[in-house]
Design a protein around this nucleic acid. Sequence first.
DNA 1: ATGACATAACATTTATGA
Length: 298
Amino acid sequence: MRALDAVTTVGCVRVVTWNVNSVKQRVPRLLPWLDQRKPDVVCLQETKLADDAFTALLGDALGERGYEFALFGETQWNGVALLSRVGLDDIAVGVAGAPGFPHIEARAVAATCGGVRVHSLYVPNGREPESDHYKYKLEWLASLRDVLEAGPADALVCGDINIAPTDADVFDPEAYIGQTHVTEPERAALEAIKALGFHDVVRDRWPNERVFSYWDYRAGMFHRDLGMRIDLILASDSVAPRVRAAWIDRHARKGTGPSDHAPVIVDLDEAPDGDIGPVVPPPSSPGGKKKVKLPQAK
DNA sequence: ATGACATAACATTTATGA
């Protein structure tokens, strides 16, 4: 018997985002996690690996698991990837119109997966408020907003957004005064994206919970649950009603050799809300095919 | 104590992270 959490419900699409902090270092955690959680679409950040090296490292393992992938990597820093086994069309790397620092950095890859425009994003850190890097972060976010506004209505904005949306998303707001990730302009940049009709689906599902996605490696921060929620999945107005589950997989931060970020997981109904009733897995579905034959409403 | 821990490469030191 399989554990419930190891099964992607037939009729659902599972989308995840995870800042892995070096995909090379994380292989012993990433592959077992894919086998356990069985996501259909995977957004990775901080892969820290050039595209050819990524393919050499993981191409076979991902292919065996049914994933196609799109990459935008660098030798040393940054790096994003998008894996999908529900289609991967119209791949776009980078954010149109966004600045570099000074060169264009590998921080964005998007594709259409199962009819939804999925963005895997690694937003610039910002370093210090008012620094050049901070200004870069805000300009980059403004360009992202414009791309999302011009893009398809069915969209998911996934990634390490490097903004704690509210004070409830940091372990101690006092400790973060004057720091990046919590400043008003950063939060306003995120709000400008949400104003396009994007919903922070984990917070919507857990409005009063202490829920973090990042804990510093140092000083036992994870053990003491002193973290931040900076990894987000934002669902467009049209996709948000399809969300059946939204949570952060804190377990993946435990144990040996974890990333300092935990994955965020969202399960979507296969079809838009209203098209179908409760999804019931057919008895003995092979699981490979995602299309579910549903009774037609009379 | 602008560190602690982890990661990378122009690597025995420095840059980056949030």
